[in-house]
Design a protein around this nucleic acid. Structure first.
Lengths: 191, 191
DNA sequence: ACTTTCGCTCAACGCCTGTTGAGTAAACAA
DNA sequence: TTGTTTACTCAACAGGCGTTGAGCGAAAGT
């Protein structure tokens, strides 16, 4: 850091900006973030951010780009293979998910990603309605991710990692059967 | 509409503004919407919006207030009792969900709502991990709602209402069993 | 050493935003 | 018909935003 070439220093500054951008986009969303705030965190003038990334939208695109080894979460456990993350999400992912309901580009990116996951999972399943069961599964994982990492629902507190995995394991059981036994009279639900 | 008292006309205008606000908030989110745009749709001056609702934030709060009979979706079907909506969502709901990841007030409102649903469902379930299974279920419904109505995942296209309900029925089967049979070797999933 | 390159800061522009206060014309009360 | 209330419009302000272009000082090239 003390003895670097000019190019290296510039690249390091770009990384500092990118990291600040990810942090801000992840916790406040695209519209809630100002270039001035990002520059402030990176310890840099706002105009430098433009010189590096061209525009706020381009910076967002760069900040949201997932590392290629994202799908390489090595694990023999079904849920983790499906992409369930019980630990903290990487900031790129948090930034993308945070803005997926309000920024068209993020929405498109998320749709593309999830469509691909549905198709991938479909080819691994058997049965007539494999695609729909894959859809339900992928959607469910999305819901769990949002409920845990963004809405922080109360029921997640105090639940150990193992307890969560155990509860979810039952949930994915129906994946193996093309026709899960639906109870004639559904479980007791009132009003 | 032709012969109304002054108060009635004012109330009607307020409703027109509120409806325009819901429509805009539902499709663009809080930050993406301007008071001028809402006023334009309602055919009214922007300042009148302020006179009626006080501020943009207050207008959003009013626009997002769910009708009290929201939970009264009468149906003997488990999934619909759980809140699954296969038809179009009411614009109040769309507006609230749309902003729940970017607007702290919407996030809090959504968290409160879902926390309540989890607790309600928990009391209707049996078994040790009832609360966690309720959590997984409610989260799953949230994910389905987002995937269908906001991200519009491809797999939803061409799927009939009955097919969807059938696929989801298997998904909720584990609700009745406190311990769902987890396959010793999980279903074939590659990489 | 002298010149060029360039990473970075400074100051500012133009635009759009939420919000405000004064003014107008029509509905009401007398 | 008079005077008052009021639903609504008009014009504007203050602030924050993304973005730009000129300039500075240090490193790189020769």
């Amino acid at each position: 850091m003390t003895e670097t070439s000019r190019d290296a220093k510039r690249a390091a500054t770009a990384q500092r900006i990118l990291q600040a951008a990810r942090q801000e986009f992840a916790s406040r969303g695209f519209d809630g973030v100002t270039i001035r705030a990002i520059a402030g965190i990176a310890g840099v003038d706002p105009s430098l951010v433009m010189q590096h990334f061209g525009s706020k939208a381009a910076l967002f695109t760069a900040a949201v780009q997932l590392p290629a080894d994202n799908a390489q979460v090595a694990s023999d456990h079904l849920l983790e293979v499906l992409g369930v993350r019980l630990d903290e999400l990487p900031s790129e992912t948090r930034a993308l998910v945070r803005s997926m309901l309000t920024v068209p580009e993020a929405e498109a990116s998320m749709r593309e990603y999830l469509n691909e996951r549905v198709e991938n999972l479909t080819t691994s399943l058997t049965g007539e309605d494999a695609r729909l069961r894959a859809l339900v599964t992928v959607s469910g994982i999305l819901g769990l991710t949002i409920a845990q990492h963004f809405l922080k629902l109360q029921a997640f507190e105090g639940a150990s990692r193992d307890e969560l995995l155990h509860a979810m394991r039952g949930w994915t059981a129906f994946l193996s059967a093309s026709e899960a036994p639906a109870p004639e009279s559904p479980p007791v639900i009132e009003s």
